[in-house]
Design a protein around this nucleic acid. Structure first.
Lengths: 342, 342
DNA sequence: TACTTTCGTGTAATCGATTACATAACACGA
DNA sequence: TCGTGTTATGTAATCGATTACACGAAAGTA
């Protein structure tokens, strides 16, 4: 175990005080140039490394930021985190990862733990059952730690967010299906208590209304984001008196399940039935029957969240800068819904 | 901004000293039971939270561990990290994420940064050009910080590793192709300086030899792990005088590229050509023509790495416990290579 | 010469918690 | 009454760096 070199060791060696060493290393202008050079050279030769923990304790800033996501092994969240890390790395921040597994209890626990670990900021996507009135959020705000929601957001005063325009995403996907000639478009939605799913649904509905189509409650099914859930849901739809001829799913996985089931029943896609998903999961473009999907620019979302954080950190004023960034979704049209192009 | 409550505040309120408060909160047996209860109750009522940074500075332990991966937005690495986080969370550790993007410079930088941030351990998958003689590794070892390689490993004294048996993975995948009746099996390999790719290749070769088949140098192509690389590589193979009738790819992405190209050429899979990949990426099972692949149990790998870390941390003895855990790969047989089953 | 700046560095407090050592109070036995 | 433990708590150092304030020396000014 190599000795830990501190500024006191350097000071002793040079017969000066630690204060001078500290000042020299921090480019304090009051230090004689010759002293500074000597200190810097000596520090290097002794292989000195600043103790970040001591610095953090003194300054109250840990140079860590926390990221809370439902789970990390999802392409979307992993990509967002990648964006955050890449944007923050040059600024000397480290990224701490926490998972909630959709449990608000874990979410609160993570919030408290991060604050107690003195992170300089928190970026998160809430669980699908998060209660924005929960104490943990106020604990964060009280501590004046910048909090930024990405993708899954809640309305809390003083909290910034970076999301995509889910309404528009739902709208353009649905409009596209209409353009392809579909006349009875169903929708797989997620938990409506999450803004994202509500907005995708509203976009879907508005697109129908704007184009002279009737909105049918029975065409909307709430599913989990899984292949099996998609299979079950499409079964329900196909059993209706007037089954739909298209599907806009708020989840790519559920869309995939629907496609698998439709094939099973020898319903031809996109000829007899068109499908569009949401998230642009990698597999959607890899399939032989590639799946039309709405891209959420996760990388950009992560980078943008990091930038919003950087703007807010160091602003000690009590004035809360509440910034709402809304990114544009992008529809990737593929075979599952292309009657005309492919 | 709420005041930060310290043990001194509690002490002042109760007319005792901070030392007593600290001892009471830490269940020191020398504290009178009534005092302990009083302190604990008061601490709770004042909403006291221990300052982790002060604790970290005093103890030299940050309760953070660092994870370095080439990139986080890969299903494999994200799953490993998930495993690490889940195993370490109950022990109070937080996980700091770093990415290298396959740059050894970034890798070194990350190692130094993590050590300077006083992490209690580091788990990593090396880049494909990592030089194990690099100073950064020794810096870590000098500091006596447990270092654990997962998946992509290097031989360094005193460093534990958790990998899968890549040789066996290559062997069983190849054997399977032989069993399906393939007689000319090609191989897409990655950078041979990485153990994992060397071993997958060696397993492949051994399986050929053990089954009376000839190993042909020209059937082995080094590709990057991407769809396009797979397409180009299969072109080369098909242009050979005696083209192969099967492929074992060390990358699922390259395998997918090959499949796309084979379809383009109207070569029937698996009838005329069988394909097996490696990593069991999510898309391999989602495809209509699902792809046979070797699973690496990333979740288990992450959990195991965390367990190895937990065993090593706190062991202050100089005796380095070098543990090499090798997990068993699992072949998932799917349509791309199943002439018999499907 | 005497007085004022300026410059460079030292002194010591601080961030918040832990802990070796000291000590006060009290009990007990002889 | 004295000596010896025992128990509970206080005192102060420590982890490593930063920084307000103090101060001596050198330089400038009248």
């Amino acid at each position: 175990m190599s000795e830990k070199i501190t500024i006191y060791d350097i000071a002793k060696k040079l017969n000066i005080t630690a204060a001078t060493v500290s000042r020299a290393l921090n480019n304090n202008p009051k230090i004689k140039e010759s002293t500074r050079e000597l200190v810097i050279k000596t520090a290097a030769s002794m292989n000195y490394k600043q103790n970040k923990l001591a610095l953090a304790l003194k300054s109250g800033r840990s140079n860590n930021i926390g990221v809370i996501v439902p789970r990390i092994d999802s392409n979307f969240f992993a990509s967002v985190i990648r964006g955050i890390e890449e944007e923050l790395h040059p600024h000397g921040y480290q990224v701490i990862i926490c998972q909630t597994h959709e449990s608000p209890k874990r979410e609160n626990e993570n919030l408290y733990t991060l604050i107690d670990a003195q992170v300089d900021g928190i970026m998160m996507s809430v669980t699908d059952v998060t209660d924005e009135n929960d104490g943990a959020f106020h604990y964060v705000l009280e501590k004046n730690v910048p909090l930024i929601f990405f993708d899954r957001s809640k309305h809390i005063d003083g909290v910034s967010s970076v999301t995509i325009n889910d309404f528009k995403g739902g709208y353009v996907a649905t409009k596209h299906l209409i353009n392809e000639g579909c006349r009875a478009i169903a929708h797989f939605s997620g938990d409506q208590s999450l803004e994202i799913f509500k907005n995708r649904f509203l976009g879907y509905k508005q697109a129908l209304l704007d184009n002279g189509m009737t909105f049918k409650e029975e065409y909307v099914i709430h599913t989990k984001s899984s292949v099996d859930a998609g299979k079950e849901a499409i079964d329900v739809l196909l059993a209706l008196e007037t089954p739909p001829d298209a599907l806009f799913s708020a989840s790519d996985f559920a869309a995939l399940g629907a496609i698998q089931e439709l094939k099973e029943r020898n319903i031809s896609i996109p000829k007899e039935f068109c499908v569009a998903g949401f998230s642009n999961e990698p597999f959607t473009k890899f399939m032989e029957l590639s799946i039309t999907s709405v891209d959420q620019s996760p990388l950009e979302m992560g980078k943008m969240s990091a930038r919003v954080f950087l703007e807010q950190v160091d602003k000690t004023e009590t004035i809360k800068i509440e910034k709402k960034v809304v990114l544009a979704p992008e529809l990737h049209i593929r075979k599952s819904s292309s009657r005309t192009n492919f």
